[in-house]
């Protein structure tokens, strides 16, 4: 199974939650514990090991918050 890693540029996230709806392994949630520079709860990943690097989250993100890497 491919292995991947995502990084969120937290301070430009607008908290729209679209990424949480398309993650096939359901590891993206809104981080209710903090507020970013724009005043939103930013999206974050709970269990990076499960990430398969499919980039669905980055694809649907309107603000290009997410960078995706894959272990080949």
């Amino acid at each position: 199974m491919a292995k991947g890693k995502v990084t969120f540029k937290e301070d430009i996230c607008k908290g729209c939650e679209l990424c949480t709806t398309v993650c096939p392994v359901k590891i993206i949630v809104m981080d209710r514990s903090k507020i970013n520079a724009k005043g939103y709860h930013p999206a974050t990943v709970t269990d990076m090991d499960k990430c398969i690097g499919c980039a669905n989250c980055a694809t649907i993100c309107p603000d290009v918050v997410i960078t995706v890497e894959r272990f080949k």
Partner: peptide
Amino acid sequence: MTIVFERTKGLTDVET
């Protein structure tokens, strides 16, 4: 580790 998705040079870095 290869990057498969990153911000394109086609956009400026201005937040929309």
